[in-house]
Computed example of a mutant assay.
Amino acid sequence: MRFAEFSAGLVIEAGPYHVTQAEVLQFATAYDPQWFHTDPEAAAQGRFGGLIASGWHTCGIAMRLLADKALKGSESFASPGLAYIKWPHPVRPGDDLTVRATVLETRVARSQPGLGILRWRWQLFNAQGAEVLGLEATSLFDLSQQLSN
């Protein structure tokens, strides 16, 4: 999507994305090697009653879904950060996840006329409707960029 296609109130949905145990273990082993992400037997005895995905893995899944659905072919080039991030429920192997992104605001920077700013809320849900990720992101768009696709 191009920056001009985003407007306050727009809702973008994508998914599902199926989470496998192999993927949970691979990501956690490489980037978040805590026992509740990497050791199924120990995790079964823990507070969550089983293996759970890293929150950072969960963010990556949401990013993938939205990159494919909304940012592919856009003028997006960076993000200065997040206003908040939360993981209200764990992601488990076998979950099917869907993302909902709600545009909160779009504007062109006064100090940099070629800079588009998008604020949006991302929510990732499992198949039971439980929110597993919530965040508010800002994305930057280079409006002077000429795209051919």
Score class of each variant (00 low, 15 high):
36 F>W: 02
41 E>Y: 03
62 A>D: 01
29 T>F: 00
94 G>Y: 15
51 L>Q: 05
36 F>K: 06
15 G>D: 11
20 T>E: 14
147 L>M: 12
110 R>Q: 14
76 S>V: 10
125 F>V: 02
102 T>G: 04
75 E>P: 02
107 R>Q: 11
125 F>E: 08
128 Q>T: 11
15 G>C: 06
24 V>T: 03
144 S>Y: 09
56 W>S: 02
51 L>G: 05
70 A>K: 04
35 W>P: 07
37 H>T: 01
90 P>I: 04
9 G>D: 05
7 S>I: 01
96 D>A: 15
31 Y>T: 02
94 G>R: 15
110 R>T: 11
28 A>M: 01
112 Q>Y: 12
126 N>K: 01
40 P>H: 02
87 W>A: 08
2 R>C: 00
116 G>V: 09
134 G>H: 11
115 L>P: 09
49 G>R: 06
98 T>K: 13
45 Q>V: 00
12 I>G: 01
15 G>W: 05
89 H>N: 15
143 L>Q: 00
2 R>D: 09
93 P>N: 14
110 R>V: 10
51 L>D: 09
17 Y>K: 04
125 F>S: 05
53 A>K: 08
64 R>M: 08
64 R>F: 04
81 G>H: 08
75 E>W: 01
99 V>H: 02
69 K>G: 02
37 H>D: 07
40 P>R: 02
73 G>C: 07
114 G>T: 13
55 G>E: 07
31 Y>E: 00
134 G>R: 14
83 A>Y: 13
83 A>P: 06
78 A>K: 03
2 R>S: 05
79 S>F: 05
